[in-house]
Nucleic acid binder design. Structure first.
Length: 260
DNA sequence: AACTTGGGCAACCGCGTCATT
DNA sequence: TAATGACGCGGTTGCCCAAGT
């Protein structure tokens, strides 16, 4: 696929933005709205590539961006969402009004990874003790069972792109995306069909995420769907964790119902 | 006070997806 | 149907600054 060079273009500014550039970009977007990123820099009088402008606006200049530290509630939400969705930062950000995907990604990489590692530490020590005891019992055997090396399985769905149609299923809570009811595209229709066919095999998860939520959204009535969404999401996740036998299998289908 | 180190974050890069021609 | 262009996303880089020595 052809791809035009972007930031590598000669003569374009790179690196940190100046306050003047910020002002130009903000002024332009306030007057003309978002979009047309490719042609925006020229129109706005900026010597930046469109991509850079978009990033600056989305991650820094947007008026609805929340400044300040991540609250414990947000922190908890990020962890829970990440355990479900993996590194789909834009999806996670969609559930945190005013937070950007970049911010959450950075927060995860700098704070939460460490936090989770620290939490894991005592568990690992327990495991080590158990392992030691087991090894002593099996001293006679020279070959150590591979099972003792197994780590706890944590479901981390492979990071994948989210189709636009999914933003219907898991709506953003901020006001930056304005989905119009009559803008249902072919892919959205496909999504509806897909959801219908999956309902039966997902132990009800397809029903909630596909039918109920989706219907609310199509009817432009997504507030109800949004308010209970995470609570239900989390409850169902916990249910899955309780059901150890089918836990992995169910999680897979659960994740699929969210993501495919 | 000078230097080093490491954390935090803004910005860049490359690629996948989608819409248009 | 294939080619192209624009957009959006996640991974990575590199700069700045505070803390430590």
């Amino acid at each position: 696929m052809g791809r035009a060079p972007c930031c590598s273009k000669v003569g374009l500014h790179r690196g940190p933005w100046t306050s003047r550039e910020d002002a130009l970009l903000t002024k332009y977007i306030q007057a003309h709205g978002e979009g047309q990123w490719r042609s925006l820099p020229k129109s706005a009088g900026l010597l930046r590539c469109g991509k850079s402008c978009r990033l600056r606006w989305m991650n820094y200049l947007r008026p609805d961006i929340k400044r300040g530290n991540i609250t414990p509630e947000e922190d908890d939400l990020i962890i829970r969402m990440h355990s479900l969705l993996g590194n789909r930062w834009s999806l996670i950000a969609g559930r945190l009004p005013g937070r950007t995907d970049n911010e959450i990604k950075n927060y995860w990489n700098t704070h939460l990874i460490k936090k989770l590692k620290n939490q894991e530490q005592p568990e690992q020590e327990k495991k080590k003790k158990k392992k030691k005891q087991k090894n002593e019992k099996n001293k006679i055997k020279t070959k150590v069972s591979k099972d003792s090396e197994k780590k706890t399985l944590v479901y981390l769905p492979k990071a994948m792109r989210v189709k636009k149609s999914l933003s219907y299923v898991i709506p953003r809570t901020d006001n930056t995306i304005n989905m119009e009811p009559n803008s249902v595209t072919t892919s959205q229709k496909e999504e509806e069909q897909r959801v219908e066919t999956k309902e039966g095999e997902n132990d009800g998860f397809g029903l909630f995420f596909g039918e109920q939520c989706h219907e609310d959204l199509v009817n432009n009535n997504d507030m109800e769907c949004q308010t209970g969404f995470l609570e239900k999401l989390y409850e169902e996740y916990l249910q899955l964790l309780k059901n150890e036998e089918n836990h992995e299998k169910l999680l897979d289908s659960f994740a699929e119902s969210l993501l495919v």
